[in-house]
Each structure stands twice: as structure tokens, then as C-alpha cells.
Amino acid sequence: MTEELLRLDGVSMQYGTGETRVTALSGIDLTVSRGELVAVMGASGSGKSTLLTVAGGLTTPTSGEVIVEGNWLSQLSPRQLATLRRRSLGFVFQDFNLIPSLTVLENVTLPLELDGFPGKRAKRPGLDALASVELLDKADRYPVDLSGGQQQRVAIARAVVGGRSLILADEPTGALDSTTGEVVLRMLRSRVDAGAGGILVTHDARHAAWADRIVFIRDGRLVDEAQTPPVTTLFEGADR
């Protein structure tokens, strides 16, 4: 059974009006199910970040529907939308976006506290999320004490804290070296395997290959998809 976490239905997005009008997305159809990671690749300016902000309800598309866990975003009041964003969605950005004056744990629990959880009740899920990215021992440190890769793992913990299930990651490995990027992807992947779903925007084919599906975007349109093949035995080691 596949449960749909996200559906984009004929989504188009235009910025500006008249002369300065830019079509960033046109007629995008895309779904992400629970347990599924979808990679989005495409040239600079092709609309990848716009796709994520639209999917995450940060911008309202010019036309088309965005449906998150069964909720039609166009039908929600601004308040309901804000609540849905806090409860269902987690963003991960290239530059980590942690708050320097908060501890690692406080950064992770921030979305819960914004959602009205008292600090004490937010602590348990915060620690769970940190444990899932293997950073429990850094809970009381500040972001500045952490390496880039570790900060990005904190950002992933923040994105999934409290059972939020749709992770929208915009170039999460962009600022990391190859090996560290891979550790971050492993974490992202394992969160998805544990029941989340996500979109991973990346320029790097090696990173996109961690996804179940790879879609290409060109001038705001999805061109085609590369599906994960059934696991065949490319070589003996493949079935370990």
C-alpha cells in the first residue's frame, strides 16, 4: 500500500507581471509516497527551488493544486496552512539554516515549540530525532561547534522532529565534501525508509542516485523520469 504524502497537480508558477513575467513552473504533475525519495535534477534556473517552495506551501502557485497528506493547500486558511507546514513538512537547505544562539537540541525542537509544545514536552521527540541522525551526544552544543556535515544532520533532525513526514531538501549536500555529503544522504535516506517521504534537489547525479526516482526539470517542465530498476544482480555483492 502506498500512501501519498504529496501530490502536485498541474502546478504552474509565474513570478512578476507583464514585461518582467517569468514562468518558473508549468504544468507540473508529481507525487511522493511514504517511504519514497524523489530526486529533482535540472540546470540552474530551471525551477527546482520554486518547486520545493510551492510543494511546501511557502508560495502559492499561479495555478494547479498542491495536496499534502490529503489537504488541498488552496482550501486552507493562512493559519491552517501554517499549522500544516509546522506539523507535516520539514525543509533542509544548502546552508543548514541553524540558529547560532540556540543549542543543537533547541534548534531541533524549535518547530515543535512554535507549534505550542511546552519546552519539556518537545525535549523527548527532539532527542529522538537527534538520535536518528546519530548526534545525541551533541544535544547541548551550539551549531558553531559542529562540522558542516553534522550541522546538516541537525537540520535533517529538525526537518523530521515530532513525526513530520515530508522532507523537502534543497541541495542539502551542496556545501559538503563528497564523503560528508554521503553520510548526510545516508541519514536522509534512512529517515525516508523509516516512513517519511521526500524531495531531494541536487545537481549531483551521484547524490540523485540515492533516490527511488529521478525527475528532470527543464525550463519549468518535468521532462522525464528515471525509475529505479528492479534490483538485479549486477554483481554478486549486490545482494548483501
Partner: peptide
Amino acid sequence: LRNLQELTRAKRA
């Protein structure tokens, strides 16, 4: 890319 995904899966496993 399919080949790359397949290799990555094997590696993940």
C-alpha cells in the same frame, strides 16, 4: 542514471 541508482542501492545495502 539507472546504472548509478543500482550501484548506489547495492552500496547502501
